[in-house]
Design a protein around this nucleic acid. Structure first.
Length: 545
RNA sequence: GCCCUCGUAGCUCAGUUGGAUAGAGCGACCGCCUCCUAAGCGGUAGGCCGCAGGUUCAAUUCCUGCCGAGGGCGCCA
């Protein structure tokens, strides 16, 4: 059993010994300050009023009861501050952590069954196939994929989906723009004027259907850059396919039957105001064409049948859309909570602190492929996942690519490469790692070693929280901290060499195996690679920039 | 006007669903390579947590109002 659970059980026992009812959840936390012990609980503060006592007195009573119990790892207890109870543990508990980690390996450590294998569809990017992905899409792409990875590790059965808006007004305008370009005519006023239109048009022959050709061209450009970012979708869901299957018309009549729509001014409207929307929304325009909304509702109905949880990743410019989509779902009898919309705030590109609006190459919006090419896939992913999606992001291309010492991705990858490098050396000098049961873990007494074990123990909690909050940046934050712990250890503690006792060397080597597992899991959840080695580019070091 | 997100060190950002002395990276300053990679390590300086109320044993965290920034408010997507 996890130490934390066993401590909670002790507390419950002590409470009932005092004739008190335990709260449903006993709050046990790691104190920020190491001098406050390994674990701390606030039950004394929470229950004091109910017990008719003051917090410190209650805590003191609890401590004396707890001291009567025997416990494998607890070495000392104290009442502190306004009425906290601090638990000080023997180092033995940390050794158990290392054994657990190494036995589980990177496949199974920090994996949970919380999701119960239930099905969740993560829909993200879903950019129109009318042009290349731009830098802003990168954030949603990396976020969505990382969320999917985190949910998979938390026991969910995850599908990554890309909704392809392959018909409708925008597609027609895109096709018309390509067509005009190919046949040397002027691009329509309300058409697409990006530089890529001209580029793509040169690849297209005059007698091809510009719509289907253009869509394929756009999708292949999407797939290429996403693949560079280590992102693969399970399905690309076509809007056109729903016209063909009749599911859009079916959705429309379902809405009618549910009395959720009405006709007015020649258009069909969704009664979204009934569910808190500012105004009702058009489903079918007076010219008979669907708005974006209706096919998307049909798509969501399809997803609701296929999965228990729907997670959508949308850009901040689409947030107004949430209410109407939930309104549609709810009016058809589904619980709106089954759709979770995660909104990513804007990305502002910079180069050396200067705002970058346009691409140097095309003079147009900066394409995602340019970002990936300039900074590299790992650095791009890590940077996009550096912070919470709730805050606008400043993405400095120079900082992320050139000035490597300021770039956190290298710090984390370097930690991994250092261990690999040490292991390679160990192999070369004939160091033979002992089998696990023969390693004397009590050799690990250095604070650097214990800090590493503590961090390693946190990983399952971090993953759990990242999953609960759909927040990959929790992983990023942990990784940076953990890498820092490793660099500190690496600096102070040697593993190989004549001056290190063999038993200590063995224990430290095993510790490094555990650390590798932690780093591998963290980097995998972010979708960045774990390099075997890294060598500094002298040209960059000596150069001006 | 209404809706969403944000406001924390000079800069970029964390802050474990209300806890003890608010953290990290970068930048600045001072140190550390005879040694498994110095893309590293250690130290110093730097804070009315936007402002004002409220809730309570306890508020950066929850509620209300205000100020400021970004985004949205189409029979576009």
């Amino acid at each position: 059993m996890d130490v934390r659970e066993s401590i909670k059980n002790l507390i419950r026992e002590a409470l009932s010994g005092l004739g008190l009812e335990s709260p449903t959840e006993i709050h046990l936390e790691r104190p920020a300050n190491v001098e406050h012990g390994d674990w701390s609980t606030n039950v004394g503060l929470v229950l004091a009023k109910k017990a008719g006592s003051n917090p410190r007195d209650l805590a003191t009573q609890l401590v004396s009861t707890l001291e009567g119990f025997s416990s494998e790892h607890v070495s000392r207890l104290e009442v502190a501050g306004p009425g906290f109870i601090n638990f000080y543990l023997n180092k033995t508990w940390l050794y158990d952590v290392l054994l657990e980690v190494v036995n589980a390996g990177s496949q199974d450590w920090a994996r949970s069954e919380e999701g119960g294998n239930s099905k969740v569809i993560v829909e993200f990017v879903s950019a129109n196939p009318t042009g290349p992905l731009h830098a802003g899409h990168g954030r949603g792409a990396c976020y969505g994929d990382s969320v999917a990875r985190i949910l998979e590790r938390s026991g969910y059965s995850v599908a990554r989906e890309f909704y392809v808006n392959d018909r409708g007004t925008q597609m027609n305008l895109f096709a018309a723009s390509l067509d005009a370009c190919v046949s040397g005519k002027d691009i329509p006023e309300d058409g697409y004027h990006g530089a890529y239109i001209k580029e793509w048009a040169t690849e297209m022959s005059v007698d091809t259907d510009p719509l289907s050709w253009g869509m394929q061209r756009a999708l292949s450009s999407h797939k290429e850059v996403l693949s560079d970012l280590n992102i693969e979708f399970d399905s690309w869901f076509s809007e056109t396919s729903m016209v063909e299957s009749g599911s859009i018309e079916q959705t429309l009549s379902m809405l009618e039957k549910a009395n959720a729509s009405y006709e007015e001014d020649g258009a069909i409207w969704l009664k979204s105001t009934k569910y808190g929307d500012d105004k009702d929304r058009v489903l079918v325009k007076s010219d008979g064409e669907y708005t974006y909304l209706l096919p998307d509702v049909a798509y969501h109905l399809d997803k609701l049948v296929r999965a228990e949880r729907l997670i959508n990743v949308w850009g901040a410019d689409h947030h107004g859309y949430i209410t109407r989509m939930k309104a549609a779902i709810e009016s058809l009898g589904y619980e709106p909570e089954r759709l979770e919309v995660e909104v990513t705030q804007m990305v502002n590109l910079q180069r050396s602190g200067e705002e970058v609006k346009l691409s140097k190459r095309t003079g147009d919006i900066v394409e995602l492929s340019e970002v990936v090419k300039e900074v590299g896939s790992d650095a791009a992913r890590f940077t996009y996942l550096l912070q919470s999606i709730d805050t606008a992001q400043t993405f400095d291309l120079d900082l992320v690519s050139k000035r490597v010492n300021e770039n956190p991705i290298f710090y984390v990858q370097y930690a991994y490469a250092r261990i690999r490098s040490m292991m390679k050396k160990a192999d070369q000098i004939g160091f033979i790692p002992s089998p696990l049961p023969e390693v004397d873990l009590s050799q690990l007494q250095h604070s650097r070693e214990l800090i590493l074990l503590r961090s390693l123990h946190e990983l399952p909690d971090v993953v759990e929280r990242a999953s609960r909050e759909l927040a990959p940046h929790q992983i990023t934050t942990w990784l940076r901290e953990f890498a820092s712990d490793l660099h500190g250890f690496y600096h102070d503690c040697r593993i190989l060499g004549d001056d290190v006792e063999p038993s200590l060397a063995q224990a430290r080597f095993l510790l490094m195996r555990g650390v590798l597992i932690g780093l591998e899991i963290g980097m995998d959840l972010l979708g960045v690679s774990a390099p075997e080695e890294m060598w500094r580019d002298e040209l960059i070091e000596d150069g001006e920039n």
